[in-house]
Design a protein around this nucleic acid. Structure first.
Length: 525
RNA sequence: GUCUCCUUCGUCUAGCGGUUAGGACAUCGCCCUCUCACGGCGGUAACAGGGGUUCGAGUCCCCUAGGAGACGCCA
């Protein structure tokens, strides 16, 4: 018999992360067994079921790449069929009309609770004759649940689970307004859809006992159940909104890749030996519901992050650029223009250096912004506030001296202003403070040594203006200059951040003119 | 309150009667290094407690404790 499974979310506005895992497990099981994965929207609660809510679920499933077979089934549309089944059960004596009011039921529950019993319906109308029915009260239809013996369910993940039938009460099948309840609808739909395996959250385990008898009363085969444990929040309680993000869509917005989320979710409650990173084709090949662990798992954002970082690193630069384009434009705050497009090209070149440092697409976009527009330095800048402005400026001046002599095609006016600046600061003539230490070196000396190094090198070897500090660090060390101290201010000036990709790479991509411009801008800020 | 389920490092888990209890994330240290990452190496860290069964128990059984879920004319 071929496997048929389904994912049956109720449209509450978004796809819950726990629902996403349930969908994923169903999908994996179907794909592994060569079976069918169906989708059913449980939209019988008319108040909550909006088209937006339904679309949100479709969107998230598509984003995750959990493709379903056939058209989705909308449960509400099948209400007449559900009612038909309920009425047949009444005719067959397996269900009956109940005239209790909601208030009476409330009292009943309170009384049961007070006497130490479970708060349930006491079957008041179960054996009452039709003639006892009060006038003007529209009844509900209740299922006659067995009152003796026990129900045994052989659950694929939970194992054999038993329940004494006295725990069961007569559940409502049809409401007073004639609409079916969830308990009826699921059973009828699952049967009509030919579902062979019901893989769903643990919270439905007790429902399974009641549903079991409904199947039996209808003369239908009971599907196999697999009740997978719920996902908990960090505090060990069922994951809910108060724990923060619980919608798949939210994770998308936070810059997570679908493969990262899937990889994370598949490992929550299931494992294949020591394999942590696995593709979906691996998962399809390896997955088995029988191996799902019975204990619930806590959601751990840190691990998701690490997986996401992994998949970002593994992604092609083209794809990443595509993914962050919108985010970049949002941060740019101006309409897309030539400068933006130019920045995009720089990002494409620098992506290798950017992506290894990002845990989310948002971080990636944020860290790439300096390729699009120059950082701004305001009074709030922590480094200025810390009183390092002067010291940094001195380092930057020296840095300019390092790269200036290597200039080949340098804008005349800019060169002029650099010379001017250095002269004013006496950079070439006095002892400088770099990185908080005194250096008995001068820009002129540095230039000289750099030039000497230049000569030692084969002609052709110098490919760009940053060659000296990168290729001849010994020169700097020889002068007692720490390259780190020299370059950190440059990093701030060029990127506006304390961390960035390799600076020589950044400089090469930005180009000499832009580098000088940004350094000058920092100094003059 | 009643019923059901759960319990291996902080977290996710491997283990399916005999293991120095393994891996991953997190954390700490070292290396690499212009920063931060990446990468490499290493460390700290767990069988909830108590009884059985057995030559032998993380693995099987029972009890206790703790946690969670379910008890709607919601799904």
């Amino acid at each position: 018999m071929s496997v048929v499974v389904r994912f049956a979310p109720s449209p509450t506005g978004f796809l819950h992360i726990g629902g996403a895992r349930t969908a994923l497990f169903n999908w994996l099981f179907a794909r592994h067994t060569g079976g069918t994965f169906l989708l059913r929207i449980e939209d019988t609660d008319r108040k909550r079921s909006t088209t937006e809510a339904i679309d949100a679920i479709f969107e998230s499933l598509k984003w995750l790449g959990l493709d379903w077979d056939d058209e989705p089934v909308f449960q509400f549309a099948r209400a007449p069929r559900h009612a038909e089944v309920a009425n047949n059960l009444v005719k067959a004596g397996r269900a009956y009309y109940c005239y209790c009011s909601p208030e009476e039921l409330e009292e009943m529950r309170a009384a049961a609770l007070a006497s130490g019993k479970p708060p349930r319906y006491n079957g008041y109308w179960r054996d009452k004759p039709e003639s006892a029915a009060p006038d003007g009260v529209v009844p509900v239809v209740r299922f006659k649940a067995p009152q003796e013996g026990k129900t045994v369910i052989d659950d694929i993940t939970q194992g054999t689970v038993e329940l004494n039938n006295e725990q069961l009460d007569d559940m409502i099948l049809l409401r007073a307004d004639g609409t079916p309840t969830y308990m009826l609808s699921v059973v009828v739909d699952d049967h009509d859809m030919g579902i062979t395996h019901i893989i769903r959250g643990d919270d439905h385990l007790t429902n399974a006992f009641r549903q079991y008898h409904l199947y039996k009363a209808c003369g239908w085969d009971v599907p196999r159940f697999a009740h997978i444990p719920l996902i908990y929040g960090p505090d060990g309680a069922k994951l809910s909104k108060r724990h923060g993000a619980v919608g798949a869509e939210q994770y998308r917005k936070m810059g997570f890749l679908p493969e990262a989320l899937k990889n994370y979710l598949v490992r929550l409650g299931w494992a294949h030996g020591d394999d942590e990173i696995m593709s979906m084709s691996d998962a399809v090949e390896w997955f088995d519901v029988a191996n799902v662990v019975r204990s619930p798992a806590r959601f751990d954002t840190a691990k998701l992050m690490s997986l996401n970082a992994h998949y970002i690193r593994e992604s092609s630069n083209e794809r990443l650029l595509q993914e962050i384009r919108e985010m970049l434009l949002e941060r740019y705050t101006k309409p897309q223009d030539e400068a933006f497009l130019e920045g995009l090209k720089r990002i494409a070149r620098g992506m290798d250096g950017l992506k290894v440092r990002a845990k989310t697409l948002c971080e990636l976009a944020e860290s790439a912004m300096f390729y699009i527009s120059a950082p701004t330095f305001d009074e709030e800048d922590s480094l200025q506030a810390a009183g390092k402005k002067e010291e940094f400026s001195a380092s930057l001046a020296m840095f300019l001296e390092c790269i200036e002599p290597l200039s080949e095609s340098f804008d005349g006016a800019l060169e002029e202003s650099i010379r001017d600046f250095c002269k004013k600061r006496n950079v070439s003539a006095v002892t400088e403070r770099i990185g908080g230490r005194e250096h008995r070196s001068t820009g002129a000396e540095l230039r000289l040594r750099t030039a000497q190094a230049e000569q030692r090198r084969a002609p052709g070897k110098v490919s760009d203006f940053v060659g000296a500090p990168r290729d001849e660090p010994a020169n700097f060390r020889g002068l007692g200059i720490s390259i780190g101290a020299l370059l950190q201010p440059v990093r701030i000036a060029l990127t506006g951040r304390k961390v960035s990709p390799n600076l020589f790479e950044v400089m090469t991509i930005l180009g000499k003119e832009e580098v000088v411009k940004r350094v000058m801008a920092y100094i003059n800020a």
